[in-house]
Design a binder for these strands. Structure first.
Lengths: 157, 157
DNA sequence: CAAATTAGTTATGAGACATAACTGTTATGA
DNA sequence: TCATAACAGTTATGTCTCATAACTAATTTG
């Protein structure tokens, strides 16, 4: 019944159908970008999630873990180990929040701020590298399209 | 130097710095898109990875597991359970490859093909939904930028 | 034909994330 | 007021995805 099952030893596997979907292209693009970003952050002892957390703490000094978790789209429980990690390396401090002894206020140390600035320079270079060769109009279009997709995806709950 | 640690109870957490990076925007856009896609595929008993595998088998009948794994950017070992799953539901068959008794030729069953076509209709609707509101020029720009980023990310090994 | 290689598989571990249950603190309302 | 509910952070645990290493059987190579 089954055809002699054409020998696929030599011909490459095509993904024409999947290439027709934005989601597929986006996943592949993001995976490639992510690999480069991981390599970029590694020398600083940072992962994507710890860099992001640090960035939000720098920008929102005194932020509480639960609100930080929400901003990072992860559960409070999982943020604990991330803050543990940042605190252990003395890049971030947990101080009791004024007016609510249940909560903590997260803040950057000087060392944390220094590391963040250095890492940010590398991340900016990485970001530029990913977009190298695109014209400004195209970069702007990408940004717009991404924020559009983000909103459409969230909305369609 | 640092301000009295403004009480962050009410004001929202901002991510202005991170928003400046394509990677951050891409991660968020993809996460949102992914959530919608998972919901789209769930009624068919498919996950993103099983749908992708099915699509590649449909397009490359007789493909071998190792080449399929490569095309999906995952290790041979991890493809086994995926093909197991597709085979158990009788959507895909493993037949001994002609000329090499170590290898298998993967092929879709009629039921598998039918399911794939139905799921594909839903996925196309999902894809259109994610891009709804963007003009054709902008969709084209997104595609171009994504393939650009994919190439840049891969290249910079 | 012995040795190395290859295809598929199994077992196992790491990493990211979710859920449930716990402690201590604050808020609510009968 | 004070029992109860709600909340912030934490701990323990399970799931899902993916990587690595080791195994079997078949094929290639020198």
């Amino acid at each position: 019944m089954t055809k002699p099952a054409e020998d696929p030893k030599s011909d490459p596997v095509t993904d024409t159908r999947l290439r027709g979907f934005v989601g597929y292209n986006m996943k592949r693009a993001f995976n490639a970008l992510q690999a480069d970003l991981v390599r970029t952050l590694e020398p600083f002892g940072l992962r994507m999630i710890t860099y992001s957390a640090l960035a939000l703490i720098v920008e929102n000094p005194g932020v509480r873990p639960s609100r930080l978790a929400e901003a990072l789209s992860l559960k409070r429980a999982n943020l604990v180990v991330i803050v543990d990690e940042l605190e252990e390396r003395e890049w971030v401090t947990r101080t009791v929040a004024s007016g609510d002894r249940r909560a903590y206020a997260l803040q950057c140390t000087l060392a944390g701020r220094k590391l963040f600035d250095e890492a940010s320079t590398a991340v900016r270079r990485h970001d530029a590298r990913m977009l190298q060769g695109l014209r400004d109009v195209e970069k702007a279009a990408l940004r717009k399209a991404l924020s559009h997709v983000e909103a459409r995806g969230k909305g369609a709950g």
